[in-house]
């Protein structure tokens, strides 16, 4: 009986050691994916002076395809009104953070991060005609 209890406790630790690093890496790569997607989006948005529906949909589709979300899980808020050259445009792109802890009932939980967000702000290049 003592052996069983010891093995159960040790197994729990080993499950965390073996699988938690994978979840850490997935979290990190998702973070990078959001950052990179918003970076490409704001480059295009700067030319148009705003985040157009095309750019927003393209960012959502990119994340949905890469990370296997539905587009409704990807949220965006930012400058959608045409902004003249020299004024700032900004955007925030968010995706669900997903599972952060391998055994969230034992380790972690409580203050879990719900969303991964990226934020970018730069000036518009657009000259209204």
């Amino acid at each position: 009986m003592r052996q069983v209890i010891v093995h159960l406790m040790v197994s729990t630790l080993f499950i965390v050691y073996m699988f938690q690093p994978f979840l850490n890496e997935i979290y990190h790569l998702r973070n990078l994916a959001v950052q990179t997607t918003l970076d490409h989006g704001i480059e295009k948005a700067a030319v148009d002076g705003r985040f157009t529906n095309t750019v927003i949909n393209e960012m959502k589709m990119t994340l949905a395809d890469q990370l296997h979300f539905s587009t409704s899980d990807v949220s965006f808020s930012g400058t959608t009104m045409t902004t003249p050259r020299g004024r700032y445009i900004e955007g925030t792109l968010s995706i669900p953070a997903g599972r952060l802890w391998i055994l969230s009932n034992v380790f972690g939980g409580g203050n879990d991060i719900k969303e991964l967000s990226a934020y970018a702000k730069q000036m518009s290049e657009h000259i209204p005609r």
Binding site: H28, T36, G86, M123
Partner: peptide, 23 residues
């Protein structure tokens, strides 16, 4: 991972800032 994220954000930020300076 933290350093990798810091590198990515720093590079993006310097790109945006240089872009704005170039205007």
């Amino acid at each position: 991972n933290n350093t990798s994220l810091a590198n990515e954000r720093l590079k993006n930020a310097v790109n945006y800032a240089a872009h704005d300076a170039s205007l």
